[in-house]
Nucleic acid binder design. Sequence first.
DNA 1: CGGGTTGCTTGACCCAGGTCAAGGCGCGCA
DNA 2: TGCGCGCCTTGACCTGGGTCAAGCAACCCG
Lengths: 239, 239
Amino acid sequence: MPTSPRPADAKLTGLIGTLRCCQLFSGLSAEDLAVIAGFVVVLKLAKGDYLFHEGEASRGCYLVQSGAVNVHRVSAGGKEQVIHVFRSGESFAEASLASPTGYPANARADEPSTVLLIPKEPILALIGRRPDLALRMLGSMSSHLRVLVGMLDDLTLKDVETRLLNWLVKHGRTAPGGTIKLSGTKRSLAAELGTSSETFSRTLGRLRDRRLLSVAGRTITLRDPAALAAQLRRNLGET
Amino acid sequence: MPTSPRPADAKLTGLIGTLRCCQLFSGLSAEDLAVIAGFVVVLKLAKGDYLFHEGEASRGCYLVQSGAVNVHRVSAGGKEQVIHVFRSGESFAEASLASPTGYPANARADEPSTVLLIPKEPILALIGRRPDLALRMLGSMSSHLRVLVGMLDDLTLKDVETRLLNWLVKHGRTAPGGTIKLSGTKRSLAAELGTSSETFSRTLGRLRDRRLLSVAGRTITLRDPAALAAQLRRNLGET
DNA sequence: CGGGTTGCTTGACCCAGGTCAAGGCGCGCA
DNA sequence: TGCGCGCCTTGACCTGGGTCAAGCAACCCG
């Protein structure tokens, strides 16, 4: 059901609404938001479309309106390392704004997605006039740094079971009845956790055998969230 | 040989010199530099002294004047993962300025060091007045992001030999006669490369057996830099 | 309906690299 | 001069997890 064409101003107010409720711009004044909405570019992506590739010159930064964007690196041998999957309300590639070296990674839609491109020049100009926006960007980048730091010690200090438990516990908190519906394939979740689909399958199977959860297709049901959390704590403690 | 006490203004101009030649502040006007020099705190650290620990509230960000500061995380089990070793002229912990969650890692001097603490409140205030400084901070953080991203695929996509080769080639470029003098112990270099001292020793030994380099105490001599670089390229290509 | 295609699971195998343990070596210090 | 203490090196061993390969189940489509 495609949205019917609307007058430009209605589209603008819709945009402003989106901008207002994202972390990056949430505190800005209505007029600043209007300025931003004025130069934002709306992009519709099909699953598998690339937003940018490693090394390309920066066009600007991005804000996910709906869907999921997978930011990853690929090694010379073609293996992908997922850096983060950004979902609705999250922004990324701010780093490319202030750096001459272009994008340091690749971004691809893992689901059909709508993404706002915030072009480089005008947003930099606005930052020059609105120091609080600069601070906000700094904050956003600092949280990305944190994510990366978190990934680092995930990958080096924790094994696959621990990473999976961590993911389950985190996503289980917001899931009614402990039922988690995967948005993508299991393979893509495996990649997000930095492992292969085989190992993922085995690890999940082990938890299932221990009656800690049950699996039906793309739905995972946590049967014993407390025990999962306990196991997670145990794993973290002994490494 | 401790420096003799000097009049305050002489100390200030010295400081300004240091500030001017670091990446973070290099383009600022003399008066802005003077303002910064006015609130900077000089810290002398002995080897092993901690600058901050994970979770502590941010006091500000830091600039290394001399020595080496090791920023790392430690797992529940006590293992350390080095994030980066910052040396003279480099700044770090900018991320903590704009984030309410405090420092996300630990920082410790790995050698006797002099570090400038740039306190949070005054530098934030200055950023509010100098948007170009904000852009500069964004740039600095974006390069830290790049470092982390680089570490990520180092740790996941490359083996120890490749990481070591990479390190050797990078440090060999600026070394006269291909002679590299380690600033710390081999163990600490191993940690920096994300491995154990045993594996490090073995890997280095293998390169020595292949006549690509020679080792004498803390001095590594590259006998065949071209072959090292070739090997590095080969390793990167096939993974 | 029958044959692709795509995704999941499982078994078998292998290997990089971590850990434990046992020397050697250099150095400061009494 | 001898002792102790960090470092480094080397050997032996073990294991997490990646890879290859083979079955399966679900689904789409002519």
